[in-house]
Design a protein around this nucleic acid. Structure first.
Lengths: 344, 344
DNA sequence: TTGAAAGCGCTACCAC
DNA sequence: GTGGTAGCGCTTTCAA
């Protein structure tokens, strides 16, 4: 046994060559056996598999990507800072749907999280670099979607949420029926006989913020009610409390409020409780999302349910379809529904 | 202009060859210019950069990785399901530290999240595949650390948190002084004259759970107090409430409680408030972490602060040092301190 | 069913 | 300071 190189330097990992030699076949055949191609004899497959096992071989992904032009991974882009991302259960839920949808394909999910607000375009350069086969972009704000920049992404992209302020040909999106949900909230609150109603909106540079407000206003109009009582939030609990305070100060006669997310609604409930205002007796509250918080809030939240997990799954499946060369629906809208609990 | 190929098929992206030709130099020179190597004439650099810009060239990462044997990315492994991950601000904070620590190196962070509890070993196979240059593993449970499996990872690994139930040579870790923090909590509560004290622990298959309990018990012994009142949680708010309920039922004379995380403490506070028990008058509460929740809780939490963000940064920097060929300290322990607020 | 050989795009060594 | 050339590990024609 030659023992060159006394240094305990890490040995080179086995290559396809090593495996082929050990199995007594050529590299080509070894490759075919490993990739499960049809025309390989059973005993050859067996021999190769044994060699793989014994050598602890695993294919070099870079080499494979170089020739197949497939990386086997897709990106999930979230142009929010980690703080926001991790404090809203919406993300956990949509992410679980995405991983579920992606699972059968064996693709690896690469999560790109914003470091600083507004560096969405920096992420886009990552997508252009050929690191991934496709991408999903969720929770985007208007500023994140520079149509020119997005257009240069050389891989399929699916959006979670309608793009706002940009036309993006060939870039399908999956969204909930936010406007329909806003209308549902309006109808429900108006249906209780309350007439002085207001809303706490999401960020108005996001489709989820804009469309829920639009739906709410449409509903108000249908009931001939004023739609002027609004305060803006940013989907965080703190902003919900602040907005609630402002709404109360400006409209002391308020009887009901539609809050555009459950997380903000928890903040609003806290503000109401702090002021000794009873829910729903004094003011009725309707939320949006129906995740976690809604049923455990005090009182349990009446809310508009959107199928968040299902949306995640659909986003992933749509991307997989595109990777497969199929052309998906340009827009897939999921229904929302009212869930009655105690708060309204 | 030849117009072969009528099909509007996506044109091949430019390669180094294309750039070199456009700049009137060889591939070698173009490569050096692009990688900022010293010995290239300024005018050459200029010409190459212009060609890059005009062609919209970006280097093929697979080809680069194949020859340099560096992927330019590192993995963050979190063997928790998305739900847990996204509901505890601990992760947001440690993640922000990690991205900050990684930033100067230009490495891309790849987040590997558990899909099902206990598939930590599946992630390990990803690490073995040569996709990344190194890895960080945080929030690991005993079951996630199979020493044999980890030993086969061919890249540097840094652990966030002391490994439990396994000796892992060459695998450094960064941790807070959890035991010290537990003792601090014991001293503080005992120092208020309360004698009937209990604790809500974290998961006892995690170092953070074990060590905080050990420290607490040591502190209790030093004050000659009984340490039998304990209930176990899993670091979620819900488990904190459940454990608090159990503790109250089993020890009606309880005067103070140390809860091993702020998130669990919020659950405990809710349970106490629901039973009409006043904090700190009837029962004093000390938490652990000092993130977000602690100061906004009702009442504001007295807690043991650990430098979470700093830990994240240190984890990243330690990994970078290893990628650089340096040998880091096998263990880096960060100090904890008592933060006095209203709850104890 | 198998093997030989070309080549994916890039870096790095060597000469000049 | 620059160019030629070999080769990273793999898949994929093309022949046999």
């Amino acid at each position: 046994m030659d023992d060159v190189g006394v240094e305990s330097t890490r040995p080179d990992p086995p290559t396809l060559q090593t495996v082929a030699a050990a199995a007594g076949v050529s590299r080509s055949t070894a490759s075919r056996a490993i990739n499960g191609e049809p025309r390989v004899s059973p005993e050859t497959v067996e021999a190769v598999q044994r060699a793989v096992r014994e050598l602890g071989y695993s294919p070099n992904p870079a080499a494979r990507t170089l020739v197949t032009r497939r990386t086997g991974s897709v990106a999930l882009v979230v142009p929010e800072t980690g703080d926001v991302l991790f404090s809203d259960p919406y993300f956990a839920t949509v992410l679980s749907g995405i991983t579920a949808g992606l699972a059968p394909s064996g693709n690896q999910l690469i999560l790109l999280i914003g470091q600083h607000p507004g560096d969405g375009n920096q992420m886009i350069s990552y997508l252009r670099g050929g690191h991934v086969d496709g991408a999903m972009i969720i929770s985007h704000h208007r500023a994140d979607l520079d149509a020119d920049a997005l257009g240069k992404i050389p891989v399929p992209v699916v959006l979670g949420g309608r793009p706002v302020g940009a036309t993006l040909p060939g870039m399908p999106y999956v969204d909930a029926d936010n406007a329909g949900g806003g209308r549902l909230a309006a109808h429900h609150l108006a249906g209780t006989g309350r007439t002085r109603l207001g809303t706490i909106t999401g960020p108005l540079d996001m489709p989820a913020g804009i469309d829920r407000l639009d739906g709410w206003r449409a509903g108000m109009r249908e009931h001939n009610l004023a739609d002027d009582a609004t305060a803006g939030g940013d989907f965080t609990a703190a902003s919900g409390a602040t907005a609630m305070a402002r709404l109360l100060d400006e409209h002391p006669d308020l009887q009901g409020v539609f809050v555009a997310s459950d997380l903000m609604a928890t903040g609003a409930l806290q503000e109401l409780s702090g002021r000794g205002i009873r829910v729903p007796d004094d003011i009725a509250v309707v939320g949006f999302d129906d995740l976690m918080f809604a049923s455990t809030a005090t009182p349990p939240l009446t809310t508009i349910r959107q199928p968040t997990r299902e949306a995640g799954r659909l986003i992933a499946e749509t991307l997989l379809a595109m990777l497969d060369g199929r052309t998906p629906e340009p827009a897939q809208i999921l229904p929302t529904e009212l869930v009655r609990r105690a708060s309204a």
